[in-house]
């Protein structure tokens, strides 16, 4: 049986009522040589909306501009045209209301797991005990209570990403931006991390923008999948994933959705 794919036009956008993150007409080009003579367009008129508590996955082949989009959302890059609004306010610089979990290991190697998680709290007006308690809570949430005093060099890749997750969740961002965070992990660890993310998401109810090139991962995690087109990058298709949660990977519906998106992706 063919699965029913809900294809929503990316141009119209979702109703802005409960939208937390809005992106409109975003374009970004890069100079191909240093004097700025040649430019290539990486993002062309990208628009999307993330609702409160929603998880969207941006899927596309490498080089389609999905990381550039995430960097703009985070405020690391500024767009040539268009705008990003978080809760109605324009976004123009990095801030703890939009935190990133990077693909690569981005922990501070001279700080212990505990100190890494506590890093962003330093500037907050909280008592020492309050901070310690928060760090304990998030260490426990990512299952690293025993490893607080370890240095990043002493723990595994999966554990590092748990720390990376904890150090941003502790800041209670309005939107969590994830840039292929599990791509460098082995298959088993990746599944553990996906479960952990879903568990934390159910508990803390963040809005999440998750970038991946792994269609299976997107179908497992997302409420909506945005399929990115390459060169210049833009949203080609928006697919609502209506699988009930908790989701099983080993089902006909799951595979059907994966197949459908993969074939769309090949045409992209």
């Amino acid at each position: 049986m063919k699965p029913k794919l809900k294809i929503v036009s990316s141009q119209k956008g979702a109703p802005a009522a409960r939208a937390i993150l809005e992106v409109e007409g975003l374009s970004k080009g890069f100079a191909t040589n240093t004097n700025g003579a040649g430019r290539i367009l990486v993002l062309n008129d990208v628009g999307l909306t993330v609702r409160k508590g929603e998880m969207i996955c941006i899927v596309g082949r490498s080089g389609c501009g999905k990381s550039t989009l995430l960097n703009i959302l985070a405020g690391f890059l500024s767009p040539d045209r268009g705008c990003v609004r978080l809760g109605g306010r324009p976004v123009d610089r990095p801030a703890p209301d939009r935190c990133v979990v990077f693909q690569e290991d981005a922990l501070f190697p001279w700080l212990t797991v505990r100190e890494n998680i506590a890093f962003g709290l330093k500037v907050r007006a909280m008592s020492r005990q309050e901070k310690e308690r928060e760090v304990d809570r998030f260490l426990a949430l990512v299952g690293l209570t025993e490893f607080g005093s370890y240095l990043p060099a002493e723990i595994s890749g999966g554990m590092k990403q748990r720390v990376a997750l904890a150090r941003v969740l502790i800041l209670q961002p309005e939107v969590l931006l994830m840039d292929e965070p599990f791509a460098a992990l082995d298959a088993q660890t990746r599944e553990e991390m996906q479960d952990l993310l879903l568990h934390l998401w159910a508990k803390l109810a963040h809005s999440i923008v998750f970038v991946t090139h792994d269609v299976g991962e997107a179908v497992l995690l997302a409420d909506r999948v945005l399929l990115f087109e390459k060169a210049p990058g833009r949203v080609k298709e928006e697919i609502a994933i209506d699988l009930p949660r908790p989701r099983e990977k080993d089902t006909e519906r799951y595979y059907a959705l994966c197949r459908a998106i993969t074939s769309q992706m090949k045409r992209a």
Partner: peptide, 29 residues
Amino acid sequence: VNPTLLRAGAMMGVRRLRGTFAILLPAAM
């Protein structure tokens, strides 16, 4: 210094001066 470390600091609310002492100097140590 790995630019990702500086970006991580910026997103966690670290401004320039504190970033220099909390991230840049240790990373360049």
